[in-house]
Design a protein around this nucleic acid. Structure first.
Lengths: 138, 138
DNA sequence: AATAAAGTCTATAAAAATTATAGGGTTTAC
DNA sequence: GTAAACCCTATAATTTTTATAGACTTTATT
């Protein structure tokens, strides 16, 4: 399962994508829309900004806004940023690989093989779906 | 990511599948093979037994053994038993469904739609792959 | 019958990860 | 100069996961 953090990040991006005509959107408004704690969301938006998805403006009249085109925001990247690995096992993770301590020989592990397949199919979707696709699905 | 519990369960089933010619296999031997804590594994095997995957024999000379054919043990079922939902969000889980508190209308949620697609592709694999496939992949 | 081996079961402890909050700092519009 | 709004780091609270403990039952063997 995705963490709430990740889920909220996706919601926040969706909200920002829907309000691109506004120069900025308040954390407060997003938090209210989804019933999320303001402070929790603040940390999430900060992370998204540091990762280059969002811009912000401080002070009165400030807020957040998307700085990437929705079509250029791959869901896989957002999930990895906030949640870490997408794969079901560390030994098949492309971005967060770690060997499994209990496994003597990964190349002869049947579990590894199945999970690699799951990873491939999952990534086939998440790498090709963008925020634009999410917006289109609303 | 799958929990260690689930991963160990899959390893244990694999081990038992490989040693079907033995009448029983000791927890101890499985734990040693994979470097897992005996007691932790004990709880896992107990759960697999209660779910009808394993039989056991108490007392001296006792141990565990598979009571299903490896081809009849779907990976999806094992994962659900030990880890819960396979889906990435509660709102797209078939077996552990829960609505997302922040979502007003699931049928118009773009995130829901993508995650349902991921679930479908994941299940296409995990429901059709069995312990036998794991054994064949070793 | 005694003993030791092996699983049973439930409870609890320890550790890690997730979720949430706090609060002072900085910037900016007005 | 004041209030609005984001910035940033730390910490607290909660939940989940991982691990351990220990007393109990069953069974083979001698």
């Amino acid at each position: 399962m995705l963490s709430k953090k990740t889920k909220y990040a996706l919601h926040a991006l969706t909200y920002l994508g829907k309000h691109r005509e506004n120069k900025t959107v308040l954390i407060h408004d997003i938090a209210e829309e989804y019933g999320i704690s303001h402070k929790f969301l603040e940390n999430i938006l900060l992370e998204l900004r540091k990762a280059g998805y969002l811009g912000s403006k401080k002070g009165k009249g400030g807020g957040y806004y998307l700085i990437k085109e929705p079509k250029d925001i791959a869901l896989s990247k957002v999930i990895r940023l906030l949640d870490g690995p997408i794969a079901l096992l560390p030994c098949v993770s492309l971005n967060y690989y770690e060997p499994c301590a209990e496994c003597k020989d990964e190349s002869h592990c049947g579990i590894n093989k199945v999970m690699a397949q799951v990873r491939d199919e999952t990534l086939k979707i998440l790498e090709n779906k963008s925020l634009q696709d999410v917006l289109d699905g609303e």
